[in-house]
Amino acid sequence: MTNQEETEVGKTIYLVLDMQNDLVHAEGPSGKGPLGAQVRERETLARTVRVLQKARAAGALVGFVRVGFSSHYQECPRHSPIFSGAPAASLFKLGEWGTEIHPDLEVRKEDLQIVKHRVSPFYSTTLEAQLRAQGVTRIVCSGVSTQAVVQATVRDAHDRDYEVVVLEDCCAAHSAQEHANSIESIRRFCRVETADSVSFD
């Protein structure tokens, strides 16, 4: 495919969502709880590694999304049921181990990097500007948790006219039922595939 043809048909990006130490590492706060147990049971990390390799081999773009706040948590919403406890627990602090992408997942300097302060990676970030600049029209995504960032990404990307693919077996929630409910609720807004079925060609 020529560069002109690639521009005409658009590009694909694999967006890895919130796969950071605070949430998915076995020694992280959430990694020691129900979410971490689901990540391990579902082999979410190993499958994500395989998809990253597949995406890079096909020449697709790769991006990593993480939630993070500055040291004094100026961006942290005080009344959020999800984020309000982060300052007291020292969670999601930028520049520290907890907001680093899990070491099993290779991050390259050319990968897109998005730091978000809310659930959706599109809210008050440069994500859409970077995607438009790169000519992206198709987003393949996965991560944790299914009921939060995955759902938010799918719905926001859909309304911005991207083609969206969710890799069901590369996602996890705080319970198997919560994951299943979340996937079912977003099927109308995306295509649901797996690590084995997805193609980046």
Rank of each mutant, 00 (worst) to 15 (best):
E6H: 11
V16F: 05
D18P: 02
M19F: 11
G28P: 05
G28K: 05
G33V: 09
P34M: 02
L35W: 02
V39D: 08
R40Q: 13
R47Q: 06
R47A: 10
T48G: 07
V49S: 10
R50V: 12
L52I: 12
K54E: 09
A57T: 03
A58W: 02
F64K: 05
V67G: 02
V67P: 06
H72L: 11
Q74F: 07
C76A: 04
H79V: 11
I82A: 12
F83R: 07
F83W: 14
G85I: 03
P87T: 01
L94V: 11
L94G: 08
W97D: 06
P103N: 11
D104G: 12
D104Y: 12
E106G: 09
R108L: 10
L112Q: 04
I114E: 00
H117A: 04
H117K: 02
P121W: 00
Y123C: 09
S124Q: 14
V136E: 05
T137W: 04
I139W: 02
V144W: 09
S145Y: 13
A148M: 15
V154G: 06
A157F: 01
Y162L: 10
Y162Q: 03
V164R: 04
E168P: 00
E168Y: 06
E168C: 07
C170K: 04
C171S: 10
A173I: 03
A176M: 07
A176T: 08
H179D: 00
A180M: 01
E184F: 05
F189E: 05
